[in-house]
């Protein structure tokens, strides 16, 4: 089964995944129209900032066992084993924030959503674009990511690639390949700026 895999070293912090996610979780599924909807659709992937102002697409890991699921008081959180996805039922959610305390990744937000009863604040998080997947589409965040920070693939494939990369860099005589020297250079400058301010 294909899953969304995050490659943090490739995130350039453009936040396009956030806009795509919000749009994919809107009534209209259209970025422009979505921005006019009430409640305003919000992203379920959150590009946070690292210690050196580098971007990082923080999204639900769909843990198994899921701490949020175990912590949920009204039993609103469930796991769909077939899709390896943890869902929050907006109708059962009571907005108690127990899941906020349980999630070790900080990916759950609390706001109104068009899938919830009107006016009700509920816990909202990534659903692996369940509806898009049913329609044969890949998750919106992956579709829009052009730097390869998000991929949709078999976990085994991603792991194999990573292993190969590591193997290449540890073999004798092979220097680590800098995929984007310009990005590395930019990050070095930014890192220096931040260290100087501290």
């Amino acid at each position: 089964m294909k899953e969304v895999v995050v490659h943090p070293e490739r995130c350039v912090g453009c936040m396009q995944c956030m806009a795509a996610c919000a749009s994919a979780h809107s009534r209209s599924k259209n970025l422009f129209l979505a921005s006019l909807e009430t409640p305003r659709p919000r992203a379920r992937v959150h590009v946070g900032v690292g210690l050196y102002n580098e971007g990082f697409p923080n999204r639900c890991r769909h843990c198994d066992p899921a701490p949020c699921l175990l912590a949920c008081l009204p039993g609103a959180i469930s796991r769909n084993a077939e899709k390896n996805t943890v869902f929050i039922d907006p109708n059962r959610c009571i907005n108690c924030a127990s899941c906020a305390m349980a999630c070790p990744f900080g990916v759950i937000r609390y706001h109104e959503d068009f899938t919830a009863p009107p006016g009700k604040t509920v816990a909202v998080k990534c659903d692996n674009c369940y509806e898009r997947q049913l329609a044969g589409l890949i998750p919106a965040c992956v579709e829009v990511c052009k730097s390869g920070a998000l991929s949709f693939e078999e976990k085994a494939d991603a792991m194999k690639r990573k292993t190969d990369e590591v193997a290449r860099t540890v073999s004798a005589g092979v220097a680590q390949v800098d995929l984007a020297p310009g990005f590395t250079l930019l990050n070095a400058i930014k890192r220096q700026q931040i260290e100087l301010a501290r």
Partner: peptide, 13 residues
């Protein structure tokens, strides 16, 4: 504004 958009920072947008 953080993180800044890497494409824009690199001149690649």
């Amino acid at each position: 504004q953080l993180p800044n958009c890497g494409y824009c920072e690199m001149g690649l947008s």
